[in-house]
Amino acid sequence: MALMSGTELAKEIVADAGRRAAAFEAAAGRKPCLATVLVGEDPASVTYVRMKRNRCRQAGIESRHVPLPATTTTAGLVRVIGELSADPGVDGILLQHPVPAGIDERAAFEAIAPGKDVDGVTMHSFAAMSFGLPGFESCTPGGIMRLLDAYEVGIEGRHAVVIGRSPILGKPVAMLLLARHATVTVCHSRTADLPSIVRSADLVVAAVGRPEFVRGSWIKPGAVVVDAGYNPGNVGDVAFAEAAERASLITPVPGGVGPTTIAVLLAQTVTAAESTMD
């Protein structure tokens, strides 16, 4: 078993984004700008946003934070995002999710202009991913693909099993794997005999949001395991110690998929800024 660490890869991606951000600033007279929108004060979300803003500063990206009260309505949130979409000084928009109950998250996501959807959460971005067209990838799936490439994991012709079907993780990572010629099975809470399906996988992507849900006995010896889950207590969706005994490669939690997710967000923000120079 070997670990697929995302930490060093993320440093490389951020360093490249930093070089590109500096070149953009020299040409445009301003830094690339990422606007973060946070509704309410969920402690985990506050921490995530602070982390992303710190990474922005390290990469030479301006971070504009827009905090909104938990009482914000869908219409109010859509209006704020629409204003940011129309602001030429903003290159990328990140709506921290989940949003409070009562807000239509999909409506809020769809208010993000496609050219500023650097988190890859809109239907436009999903369609672009699915059809192999230019656009922004969902950041965690994009980070997973970069991690697989960095560790030279063969994808073409392999059977990939994705556990989870969320619109910003399970579904888009399935599309990206399919585009790389994997045979993809998407499983979910209603999948019958899930363990036997996982045992047939050369590559397992766990994105179900349940701590240690995937057991080591489910893993085919030599399979590659990507744990995209993050649960309280720094626990992933895979029973790590068990799975590590059978997997050839496995991501740790934390330090696996997480760092690459933020790195892709920064890289795509710089790409969005660069596109304004075309």
Results as ranks from 00 to 15, higher is better:
D91V: 06
L169I: 15
T122Q: 05
V66R: 04
A70K: 07
T71L: 11
P172V: 14
P69T: 04
V162D: 03
A127P: 06
I93C: 04
A108Q: 01
G135T: 08
V90N: 06
I81Y: 03
P100N: 03
L176N: 01
A128N: 12
I103W: 03
G102R: 05
V118A: 03
L77K: 00
E62Q: 13
R79L: 12
F126L: 15
T140K: 02
R106H: 14
P98M: 11
E137N: 14
C139W: 02
A111Q: 01
V153W: 00
V90P: 02
A128I: 07
V161Y: 00
H159V: 13
G120V: 11
K171L: 14
L95Y: 00
L95R: 01
T73E: 10
L147I: 10
L176G: 04
D149M: 09
I112F: 11
G170K: 01
L147R: 05
R64A: 13
T74Y: 05
K116R: 10
S166Y: 03
V162Y: 02
R158C: 13
G102N: 05
R158S: 10
K171F: 09
F136D: 08
P114N: 04
G154Q: 15
G132F: 04
A70E: 13
R106D: 14
L68G: 09
E110D: 11
T72C: 08
V118T: 11
T140Y: 00
A107C: 09
G132C: 08
A174D: 06
G82Y: 09
A107Y: 07
D91W: 13
A75T: 15
G132S: 10
H159E: 12
V66M: 04
L147G: 01
I163M: 13
I103G: 03
